[in-house]
Write a protein that binds this DNA or RNA. Structure first.
Length: 585
DNA sequence: GCCGTTTTCGGCCCGACTGTTTTCAGTCG
């Protein structure tokens, strides 16, 4: 049972309690616990440990017991009992926008509807519209939502919607009536998966901005539209919300809609301690609470013109959006110990790229040229090794030829350097796809798993560790093999992998391809603690995809990394020494 | 069900929008 599966169970309990009409705060306690587990950086084995469990915020005795039962047995009696009270398919009704617990309960109790199929039928025969609290409009909306649902899942990789988000932002910012415009929400926090795009615009003419937004060519349909808030569906299928505020309200709205929710609660409670209330529009004096035994503070409310001043007002250093996940950023901001996060400009080169020699779409020369255009000082070429048949892996002869070409090209290059590497398959038993004699000819080796994903956690961990113990292995690529929204990570003990990385000096890749973003940002603070070095690689199979490095930097920032944590921030002169040093450790 | 520099009991974020109502409940973020 993985961390995310446990979170999913807590989420399901919360939904079932909602259907039962339980105490809303109890329901929220389960949702909070689920989110808390998801966001938590620890490993699964810690979940069996009572002390570690009780340190996770939002988890008390009752939920801790349930998690222990889940971790130990893989099932939970309490959940089974709850499930028995409703038909299994009823939960899928929650995926229809506009349907919540109350409406689903009514549909179930009045019309015995417990699946999307039954719901569609009932809408088509007009029975839904006759229920109290429903109507013709609601019925038609449900029909449309069911059709919409068939077209997309509602979840998107960050990279899939980045273009739309940036286009809308710059088009809105370009309006003469827009005084400020920004993308907020999970996109701004650089979450790997987003399910909507939030935009905030400051203006004196809300109607003009709203009208422009609703008529934008990227907008496919309008979901809701009011004086300050509009929701639309974009062509990609993602929902996009626009909030229109005044200039004075803008910093509050931007912070509020950037979130995340737990971070906002943290900000609000800090405001309360000062005797203020914080919402998406302003800081205001807290209304007197007749029940309060003692008076709260009544500090004078300072002027707030931007987000930094908002954080300052709450006695905090500015917290970069990527860190706003309620994972100890408040403590660090209070103690002035937030790290100076890595910036895009800090990257000097990168190591994991493919060419037409294996399954890439551009030649060595084209990739080299593109890297120089991006302003990089070096580029490592790591084509697939011979066992990766599906990726046209190269054999020893082709590899030797590529090494020779790279050495020759380097003689012509000035102020830029190509490194000869390989993305070497880690075979089933943890041995590598080429013998050491071949690997020793290269400048570096990227080791990765591309086959036999279904080993047990112990076997997979042993396999990867064996590869990492080879001194010629410079870095471990995409350590969990996940493909976001497509393929689950294979079972592997990342905590153990990080220990071995620390011991052997093996760099761990942050694969910047938006479908991977692996190793996950939640692990990086732990990696850093143990002195493990990161390398941000685009895994580019064509020149355009070198730009994925940008996504990698976002995730590295989210993992609290600075430029000293990331090997490819080293300039050319130092990276060569670092590559050599890795082999002679 | 969780939590505590005000607390072991009594709080727990709250505003926007929609649709069905005729002053508000439900949903969403």
């Amino acid at each position: 049972m993985t961390k995310n599966e446990i979170a999913a169970v807590l989420e399901e309990i919360s939904t079932l309690l909602e259907l039962k009409g339980e105490n809303p705060f109890k329901i929220r306690a389960y949702t909070n616990a689920a989110r808390s587990i998801e966001a938590w950086g620890g490993s699964l084995s810690d979940l069996k440990n009572e002390e570690a469990l009780s340190k996770i915020p939002g988890i008390g005795k009752s939920i801790a017991d349930k998690i222990k039962e889940l971790a130990a047995t893989g099932s939970l009696k309490y959940l089974e009992e709850l499930r028995a009270e409703f038909p299994a398919a009823i939960l899928e009704l929650f995926s229809i926008p506009g349907l919540g617990a109350k409406k689903i309960k009514a549909l179930y109790e009045e019309l015995q509807i417990s699946s999307i199929g039954q719901l569609l039928k009932a809408c088509e025969t007009g029975r839904v519209a006759k229920l109290p609290g429903f109507g013709e409009t609601t019925q038609a909306k449900i029909c449309r939502a069911i059709e919409e649902r068939a077209r997309h899942s509602g979840y998107f990789q960050f990279g899939q919607i980045a273009n739309e988000a940036e286009t809308l932002k710059s088009d809105l910012a370009g309006r003469p009536d827009a005084l400020q415009a920004h993308v907020a929400g999970s996109y701004r926090r650089r979450k790997e998966i987003v399910h909507d795009v939030d935009l905030v615009v400051a203006t004196r003419k809300p109607e003009a901005i709203t009208k422009f937004f609703a008529g934008h060519p990227l907008v496919e349909s309008i979901i809701a539209q009011g004086p300050t808030k509009s929701s639309v569906r974009l062509r990609s299928g993602i929902q996009c919300d626009l909030r229109v505020v005044t200039v004075a309200e803008y910093p509050f709205a931007l912070a509020y809609f950037t979130g995340n929710k737990e971070h906002n609660i943290g900000l609000r409670s800090r405001a309360l301690q000062c005797g203020w209330t914080l919402n998406e529009y302003r800081l205001a004096p807290s209304p007197p609470d007749p029940k309060a035994k003692k008076k709260r503070g009544t500090k004078k409310i300072p002027k707030v013109r931007d987000e930094a001043e908002l954080y300052r007002a709450l006695d905090l250093d500015f917290i970069p959006p990527e860190l706003r996940e309620n994972r100890s950023e408040f403590e660090a901001a209070e103690k002035h110990s937030l790290p100076k996060l890595i910036e895009k400009e800090d990257l000097r080169g990168t190591f994991h790229c493919h060419t037409t020699a294996s399954d890439g779409h551009n030649t060595l020369e084209e990739m080299s040229q593109a890297a120089q255009t991006l302003g990089l000082e070096y580029l490592g070429i790591a084509d697939h090794s011979r066992s990766s048949i599906q990726a046209h892996g190269i054999d020893e002869a082709a590899l030797r030829a590529q090494i020779a070409t790279i050495r020759k090209l380097n003689k012509k290059l000035d102020g830029f350097r190509l490194f000869a590497g390989i993305e070497c398959d880690i075979l089933r038993d943890g041995s590598l796809d080429f013998p050491d004699e071949v690997l020793s000819q290269l400048d570096y080796v990227v080791a990765s798993v591309h086959s036999v994903f279904n080993l047990s956690e112990a076997d997979m961990t042993r396999r990867v560790i064996r590869a990492m113990e080879n001194p010629f292995v410079t870095m471990l690529a995409h350590p969990t093999g996940r493909l976001l929204l497509k393929r689950e990570p294979y079972e592997i003990d990342i905590s153990a992998i990080l220990d071995v990385a620390a011991r052997t000096g093996t760099w761990i890749e942050l694969n910047a391809a938006p479908k991977r973003l692996d190793l996950d940002w939640r692990w990086w603070p732990r990696a850093k603690e143990r002195g493990v070095k990161c390398v941000i690689n685009p895994d580019a199979h064509r020149v355009e995809r070198l730009q994925d490095l940008w996504f990698g930097v976002g995730i590295a920032r989210k993992g609290w990394l600075t430029k000293t944590d990331v090997m490819n921030c080293l300039p050319l002169g130092k990276i060569e020494a670092a590559l050599r040093a890795k082999r002679t450790r």
